[in-house]
C-alpha cells in the first residue's frame, strides 16, 4: 500500500503525533515499504479461519464487587506534569 503524504498526516493526527514538514516524505516512504512488506499475508488463504486474538488458556476471571474506600489521590497525582487543586490541569479546552 502506497502511503501518500496526506495519509501520513491523517494517521498522525489520529494518533496525535506531530509530523514536521521535513519528516513527511521519508516517513511516508518507510510506512509504505513496511505495509508493502506485510501485505505478503495476502498470499495466505484465510477463508473460514477464526482470528486468534488471545493465546491465554485462562477464562475471564471475575472480581467481587468490593470497593476500596482509600483515597489514593496523592499517589495518582504524584507524577502529574501539572496539578491544580487536586485536579490534573491541561491547556484549556474550548468546546
Amino acid at each position: 500500500m502506497k502511503i501518500d503524504k496526506n495519509t501520513t498526516l491523517k494517521i498522525a493526527k489520529l494518533c496525535r503525533i506531530k509530523v514536521r514538514d521535513e519528516e513527511i516524505e521519508e516517513l511516508s516512504s518507510q510506512l509504505s515499504s513496511i505495509l508493502d512488506w506485510v501485505e505478503k499475508l495476502n498470499e495466505v488463504n484465510t477463508d473460514n479461519i477464526e482470528p486468534l486474538n488471545n493465546v491465554s488458556i485462562a477464562t475471564l476471571p471475575l472480581r467481587k464487587d468490593k470497593e476500596n474506600l482509600q483515597d489514593q489521590s496523592k499517589e495518582v497525582l504524584s507524577n502529574a506534569p501539572e496539578k491544580l487543586e487536586n485536579y490534573f490541569a491541561v491547556p484549556k479546552v474550548v468546546e
Binding site: L84, A89, K92
Partner: peptide, 9 residues
Amino acid sequence: QNPSKTYVD
C-alpha cells in the same frame, strides 16, 4: 474553574 486551564477529575 480556571481562565487558561481545563481541570480533570
